[in-house]
């Protein structure tokens, strides 16, 4: 609970701060806190991914972008109350919805009743892999993971296409502006 509260504090820091460098570093701290929470919730695979992806790669990419752009956030031109109202309204509806959730940590919750008992009982026998997360990821739900790999592939190609031709383009623009 302390961890979750710290995450909320980090989030409000992200909300308030104007220096984007501080925001990005806070984002990294937030990701590490999230990874710790996930370990507490028994999701070790997810925690490992969150620590390496969320706190590692994302932060590096964000810092790279900040180097290429600007570090200071400009003061907003117009302050509007509307986004705050929307956020609070959505929050109220969602909080009302949580009261219908099954209580935390109870084994009788509906999520534990279907498919999963079969995975837990059969996966070692069927796949010889004790880590059920790996077994479900790669075997029982192999199509999902294939699609996911394709998404990463597409994103990689997209980034390469967006940023690769840049120097040539910048040169063309420079020549258009009279070789400035």
């Amino acid at each position: 609970m302390a961890l979750l509260t710290m995450m909320v504090v980090a989030t409000f820091g992200i909300l308030r701060l104007g220096n984007l460098f501080a925001v990005v570093i806070l984002g990294g701290i937030y990701s590490f806190l999230m990874a710790t929470v996930l370990v507490v919730l028994d999701a070790v695979d997810v925690a490992m991914t969150e620590a390496s992806v969320g706190a590692g790669i994302s932060t590096v990419l964000m810092l790279g972008t900040l180097y290429l752009t600007k570090v200071e956030e400009a003061a907003p031109v117009r302050r509007s109350i509307l986004p705050l109202l929307i956020a609070l309204g959505v929050g109220a509806v969602l909080a009302y919805g949580t009261f219908d959730f099954p209580p935390f940590g109870v084994a009788e919750a509906p999520i534990h009743q279907h498919v999963v008992p079969r995975y837990l009982a059969k996966s070692v026998e069927e796949t010889m892999v004790p880590n059920v997360v790996t077994a479900v990821l790669a075997s029982y739900r192999g199509y999902d993971t294939l699609g996911e790999t394709t998404v990463i592939f597409t994103a990689g190609i997209g980034v390469l296409l967006l940023l690769r031709g840049g120097r040539k383009g910048a040169g063309a623009r420079g020549s258009k502006e009279g070789g400035a």
Partner: peptide
Amino acid sequence: NPLPHVLILTAIVVGVA
């Protein structure tokens, strides 16, 4: 429950992409 773990593993990697 391992099933949400699998789904969120996918979500994290798609998220970074």
